[in-house]
């Protein structure tokens, strides 16, 4: 151990190294959020700033009284998106992990990531083309005779279309963390459990799931957050019945800033609740294991 590298120098260099990033994040992330927080308690006005005094809770009142449907719908869509991503993403991660060669694993991973190198908007647009009434899927169904000529399924502008778009958009955020935790997973544990007479399901629930839990949690958070705040997907694939909170916040930035700010705060509150639940679940799990 080098004597000169005392705890003090380490502390000093640690602070120094963290300082620029912390300053950047405080200045350009936290401070702006404080502004939104303050705005959410102000009164709307038709002035240049869009807000005025006095301080009031009326934006929150309206958000919960008038927009409750939208809040609940956003939460529901985000939860479903997360769940579907988990159900689809877990097997994919498993599939990638169990390729026999490093090259095979990389190719499998590559095929997941690659579609995401095209722009998010362009990908969502591609779904518009696929789901449209005169689009690829309806055309195909008519071609093979499932639908009669002139008949079509209405797929766009439904909640299903929005869910599909969100799952499509955020699936890699689920696959990658699960894959990362599976990569560290030692499969000889499965072998050992089998040798000791554990059945497959037992192995899965008692060994594999707990060991990959950090990946599942990370993936779920990474999917849930952008899904609940999504703006582009409901706008492009949804209709009147799929109005979500993100669209509303964007709209209210132009027309009613305190309400937009209050909706932002409520959305962040929901994210926070989700995080607390996850953190609690994770601690409980680690206690069980420990």
């Amino acid at each position: 151990m080098a004597m000169w590298l005392t705890a003090r120098t380490r502390k000093y260099s640690g602070v120094l190294l963290a300082l620029p990033s912390v300053l950047w994040l405080v200045l350009f992330f936290l401070l702006p959020l404080v502004i939104v927080f303050v705005f959410s308690f102000m009164t709307r006005s038709t002035s240049v700033t869009g807000v005025t005094l006095p301080f009031t809770l009326s934006s929150y009142e309206r958000a919960f009284n008038v927009f409750d449907v939208i809040l609940i719908r956003s939460l529901r869509i985000a939860l479903f998106t997360t769940l579907i991503c988990l159900v689809i993403g877990y097997p994919i991660a498993f599939y990638i992990r169990t390729r026999k060669t490093v090259l095979g694993r990389n190719i499998a991973l590559f095929l997941i990531i690659l579609p995401f190198w095209t722009n998010f908007l362009v990908r969502t647009y591609a779904w518009q083309v696929l789901l449209s009434e005169n689009g690829t899927i309806n055309g195909f169904l008519r071609g093979i005779g499932i639908l009669a000529q002139g008949e079509s399924l209405q797929m766009l502008q439904t909640e299903g279309a929005v869910l599909l778009g969100l799952v499509y958009g955020y699936l890699p955020f689920m696959v990658l963390p699960i894959y990362a935790s599976l990569r560290r997973f030692d499969f000889r544990l499965v072998e050992a459990a089998n040798d000791l007479g554990a059945r497959d399901l037992q192995v899965f629930w008692r060994i594999i799931v707990p060991m990959t839990l950090p990946g599942i949690i990370a993936g779920s958070i990474l999917v849930f957050i952008p899904a609940i705040g999504s703006f582009v997907t409901p706008d492009m694939l949804g209709g009147t019945k799929t109005l979500m909170i993100g669209t509303l916040i964007g709209d209210k930035f132009e027309r009613d800033r305190p309400l937009g700010a209050a909706l932002s705060m409520i959305m962040m509150g929901m994210v926070l609740v989700a995080l607390v639940i996850y953190a609690w679940g994770m601690r409980k799990e680690s206690q069980n294991n420990g």
Binding site: F29, P32, L33, I35, V36, I221, L222, I225, P226, I228, G229, F231, G246, I249, G250, F253, G260, S264, M267, M268, V271, L272, L275
Partner: peptide, 11 residues
């Protein structure tokens, strides 16, 4: 990572 993009952009 926990702040939705729309909030970040507007704030």
């Amino acid at each position: 990572m926990v702040i939705p993009e729309i909030t970040q952009g507007i704030s």
